[in-house]
Deep mutational scan, measured.
Amino acid sequence: TFYNFIMGFQNDNTPFGILAEHVSEDKAFPRLEERHQVIRAYVMSNYTDHQLIETTNRAISLYMANL
């Protein structure tokens, strides 16, 4: 899942690491979701930090390219 992918960046001092920290603390994050459209919609609806949203979009693109 995307959640498992992004958790691989925990403790990294990178934008993906920052995203992983936010996702791990977000109890409502769709952890079992595999459809990138649902993940993107969730982030757009629940996150207000523009940098975090952009990082999510980049992470989703990388995740999709590696499926």
Rank of each mutant, 00 (worst) to 15 (best):
T56R: 02
A41T: 09
P15W: 09
Y47G: 02
L67G: 10
G8A: 12
F9R: 01
N66E: 13
V38H: 07
L67M: 13
V38D: 05
M44R: 07
I6K: 00
Y47H: 02
A41W: 09
I39T: 01
R58C: 10
T48S: 11
I60N: 00
F5L: 01
Q10K: 15
Y47L: 03
Q37T: 12
L32P: 04
D26R: 06
F16G: 01
D49L: 05
S45L: 12
P15L: 11
L32D: 14
R31C: 06
R31I: 07
H22G: 02
T48V: 10
T14E: 03
F16R: 01
F2K: 01
H22W: 12
R58Q: 12
V43P: 00
H36Q: 08
D26P: 03
M64C: 11
M64V: 13
F5M: 01
V23S: 01
H36E: 12
H22D: 02
N46V: 08
Y42E: 02
T14M: 03
R40M: 15
L62C: 11
A59Y: 06
V43T: 04
L32H: 14
M64T: 09
N66Y: 15
H36D: 07
E34V: 15
A28H: 14
G8Y: 07
L19P: 02
A41Q: 12
N57T: 09
M64F: 08
N11Y: 12
H36Y: 13
E25H: 15
P15N: 07
M44N: 09
T48R: 10
N11I: 05
F29M: 04
M64H: 11
Y42F: 04
F2V: 03
D26N: 03
S24V: 07
L62Q: 07
P30K: 02
H36W: 15
F9L: 04
M44P: 00
H50V: 13
H22L: 10
N4L: 11
E54C: 08
H22Q: 07
G8N: 11
A28P: 03
I39N: 01
E33V: 05
V23Q: 03
H50W: 13
A28R: 11
Y63N: 01
H36S: 13
M7R: 05
I60E: 00
V43M: 11
E21Y: 13
N13F: 06
R40T: 08
Q10G: 06
N13H: 09
I53N: 03
R35W: 05
G17V: 04
R35F: 05
D12E: 12
I39E: 00
S24H: 13
N4M: 12
R35M: 06
T48D: 11
R58V: 10
L62A: 09
I53M: 07
I39L: 05
E33F: 04
Y3D: 00
Y42V: 04
I6R: 00
G17E: 03
N11R: 08
Y42G: 00
V23G: 03
Y63S: 02
I60K: 00
T55A: 11
S24I: 09
T1L: 06
Y42W: 05
E34G: 14
V38E: 09
Y47K: 01
S61G: 10
P15I: 08
N4A: 13
L32F: 13
T56M: 15
Q37R: 08
G8T: 14
G17H: 05
P15D: 12
T55Y: 11
T48E: 10
L19H: 01
F2I: 05
I6V: 07
N66Q: 15
P30F: 08
Q51P: 05
N4W: 09
D26F: 07
A65T: 09
R31K: 09
A59C: 04
F2E: 00
F9P: 01
A28M: 14
V38S: 08
A65F: 10
Q51T: 13
S45E: 14
D26L: 06
Q37L: 09
P15Y: 08
T48N: 11
A41F: 08
I39Q: 00
V43R: 00
N46G: 04
T55N: 04
R35A: 08
I6Q: 00
S61H: 12
A41P: 00
L62P: 00
S61V: 14
T1M: 05
Y42Q: 00
T55G: 03
N57H: 12
I60R: 00
D12Q: 14
E34M: 15
F2H: 00
E21A: 15
I39P: 00
L32N: 13
N11T: 07
S61F: 12
S24D: 07
E54G: 05
V43I: 11
N66S: 15
I53P: 01
A28N: 15
T14N: 07
V23Y: 05
I6G: 00
I60T: 02
S45C: 10
S45M: 13
N66T: 14
L19I: 04
F16L: 11
S61L: 14
Y3T: 01
Y3K: 00
E25M: 15
L19F: 04
N4E: 14
L52A: 03
K27G: 09
N13W: 06
T55V: 10
R35T: 06
I53W: 10
R58H: 10
N4F: 09
V23K: 03
M44A: 10
D12T: 14
Q10E: 08
R40D: 02
I18K: 14
K27D: 10
L19W: 02
R31T: 06
I6S: 01
N4P: 01
K27P: 14
Y63A: 02
F9N: 01
E33Y: 03
V23H: 03
Y47M: 04
N13Q: 10
Q51H: 12
H36V: 15
P30M: 04
V23W: 03
F9I: 03
T55S: 07
N13I: 07
F9S: 01
Y47S: 02
F9D: 00
M44W: 07
Y47E: 01
R31Y: 06
